[in-house]
Design a protein around this nucleic acid. Structure first.
Lengths: 147, 147
DNA sequence: ATCTTTGCAAACTTTTTGCACCAAT
DNA sequence: ATTGGTGCAAAAAGTTTGCAAAGAT
């Protein structure tokens, strides 16, 4: 994966070391594609390397985040989820069933522009998820009303 | 305050009781106007009634939230802030200096419509704050670049 | 050899819960 | 008299930190 190479360069360039643990976390992150918690990542890396500790996962995520490689999003109620930086999408999360869906960031472009123009505020939209009710749960609610 | 009366009706209507603690939390919430943490509210109510416990504040907020009177927003890094329900505004939070600003919800109308039209997703925008960098901190960053 | 990173355990922060007592209806 | 709410202490949940040992450069 070209992505991994670039990240390794990045880490070394900033005086960091490419350790076994970091490789593992990074591959897990790539494999996961999106929205995984630190705990999820831990399970993934421990499948191969059981000695890797949760705090190492956190520290690695932190390091990767400082390099701009990783971002985290708060989907709600405490746990954060991490994913490789990718400005092309945004998360919408159903507060009823916790389903996470990705939507193109272009949907948010106008809002970002408005906030900049009117409030001189530079949004980092993807730090927080958009919460609401998904298709299925809306449907269920409507059905419930009919009874 | 008419608002308080309505809430009291609401609580009783659902079999709830209007206790001293709840009155205190509710007044604090009204007095605070917006974005207070549970801890902030605790301090406010304890000024008058030191026996009120943090867990009571949480439970009261929970009860009020279930009635739709209160909403909470995650501004980041753990702590949530609570405010009386008011769909007319949205929070934008600076991740550098933690300043919270309110912006009219109308700014988000188009986004809400798009998410509904294209994804059948009903947003509850005000559950999460919009994170970014404020005017002042943007300025500071620019100044820093000049040095 | 140096200096970063790790594993571990323990601390921390925010929120939730079990329980016996208290108080609003 | 009910039954919902409170205070307290203790647990949970998620994340961070101090430290000595291990590992990358």
């Amino acid at each position: 994966m070209e992505r991994m190479e670039a990240v390794i360069q990045n880490i070394r360039a900033s005086g960091g070391r490419m350790t076994h643990a970091r490789k593992a976390v990074l591959s897990a992150l790539v494999a996961a594609k999106s929205h995984v918690t630190a705990e999820d990542l831990l399970k993934m890396v421990q499948a191969e390397s059981p000695e890797i500790h949760l705090s190492t996962v956190y520290r690695t995520l932190d390091a990767l985040e400082n390099l701009g490689v990783v971002d985290h999003v708060h989907l709600g109620h405490g746990r954060a989820v991490y994913h490789l930086t990718d400005n092309a999408h945004q998360h919408i999360v159903c507060e009823k069933c916790s389903t996470v869906e990705e939507v193109p960031a272009t949907l948010f472009a106008q809002l970002e522009k408005d906030l900049m123009d009117r409030y001189e505020f530079k949004v980092r939209m993807n730090h927080f998820a958009v919460i609401g009710t998904c298709r299925n749960c809306l449907q269920k609610r409507n059905n419930a009303k009919l009874n």
